[in-house]
Design a protein around this nucleic acid. Sequence first.
DNA 1: TAGTGGTCTAGACCACAGC
DNA 2: CTGTGGTCTAGACCACTAC
Lengths: 257, 257
Amino acid sequence: MVDRSASRGNAGYRAIADALREEIDKGGLPPGSKVPSENELMSTYGVEQPTARRALDVLKNEGLIVARRGAGTFVREFRLYRRRSPARLAESGWGAGGSIWTSDDAERHTSVDSIEITTVDAPDHVAAVLELADGAKALVRRRRYLVDDTPVQFATSYYPEHLVRGTRVAEANTGTGGVYARLAELGHRPVNFREELRARMPRDSETKLLELAQGTPVIMVVRTAFTAKGQAVEVNEMILDASSYILEYDFTSNESN
Amino acid sequence: MVDRSASRGNAGYRAIADALREEIDKGGLPPGSKVPSENELMSTYGVEQPTARRALDVLKNEGLIVARRGAGTFVREFRLYRRRSPARLAESGWGAGGSIWTSDDAERHTSVDSIEITTVDAPDHVAAVLELADGAKALVRRRRYLVDDTPVQFATSYYPEHLVRGTRVAEANTGTGGVYARLAELGHRPVNFREELRARMPRDSETKLLELAQGTPVIMVVRTAFTAKGQAVEVNEMILDASSYILEYDFTSNESN
DNA sequence: TAGTGGTCTAGACCACAGC
DNA sequence: CTGTGGTCTAGACCACTAC
């Protein structure tokens, strides 16, 4: 038997994590503040360093704290950016103002970097939706979105190559109105949209691309754009940093749910 | 210096995790299959047990594997359930079939348990949206949704208490057409809807309620229902097991990005 | 230089599943 | 009973930050 009676007695790493979490929830440790170091936890709870560390690991994986080597561990701060989907509805303003979460109303600087345009064999699930014949190619546009110079989204769009060959859709600058305006000019105006969403923990490559902190999920949004005839002309796979986004969908209905 | 030259030489826990992840991605370890035990990893990579364990912890936190004490650690299997939001649109079928992810098309058994109805002071952010005067109460309906007997969602709905007092909205069984039909009869038909979404790692209570595996995010969906006059008559906060859901939003637009 | 987080060894004990 | 995952001690070394 081992003597575990230190300052605050014996405690497992889960109990330590619970205590810290409660302190954070309660506001005793506000966002940005420093949480006790491993050394402090060791003496406070009478545990060894690996145990103190594991307690902090729990909260890191919950996305509540971030560690900065040499500096300390801190309660995480969030800045949320709102993405409105059928943008036209939201702007026309019924129920405007009645939002549950607040996002930065002040304008934030958004930009795009690293546009990359290639022609590839589309992945099977994309080829099926775009109804690409065997061997038909897809034009791919990849780009990363930044808000206030931090990456928040990585998007990959697929188009049937034979529809957009030699047009501005295949250029970095697609002109006013963007890709959808160009598709409309080509006789393939997108009018119906489907967005499918999932959330999951990121792959390693996504963690690097979006510079994600531990414990940050990603939201996958796949938008498919259809013409009036029902033909899919775009599949856009977006990977969003879940800690940076609120997604908003507005719709009108007679019977719903 | 320590001799780390075992079977496959020295490797940090990250390298071991990377190797296993690659094996999973590549299909060498299909969903449901058993991943090497801690003992096997120790001899394969020439590390001690805590190091082998940490490698597995990485993948658990990524939601790729689940451990069953005494039995082993296994590659995770997913069963996705599709939630369509403006349901009427999806059913009317433009672009039907062109979905990126497949969900179980076979009927699955869905049910609700533990309905709980109370009257409370609404949280501030809800009171603001429902425009509740100081001291005005809210009726709260809480329930948990199951699919094939596993919990997938926990929902909390708020209504202005003075609107629904003494009606079937305050009863467990709300009758055909549900709450929205009752609200319509009361002269408060909801016609416009806003859904706001976030994804994050679960709180401890949510992990228990939804029986979430490690590395499983939750999706918070907050639906606000507005009458034609723009009054909010319901706020419904849903917590979804992200590993069980695909969310789908269909909409029509003339200009949309 | 002192303090902080990050990694690892070496060895121990416990709880649980499956045979 | 054996093997598996889960927890913990005790002590070491490294990499980085802030002063």
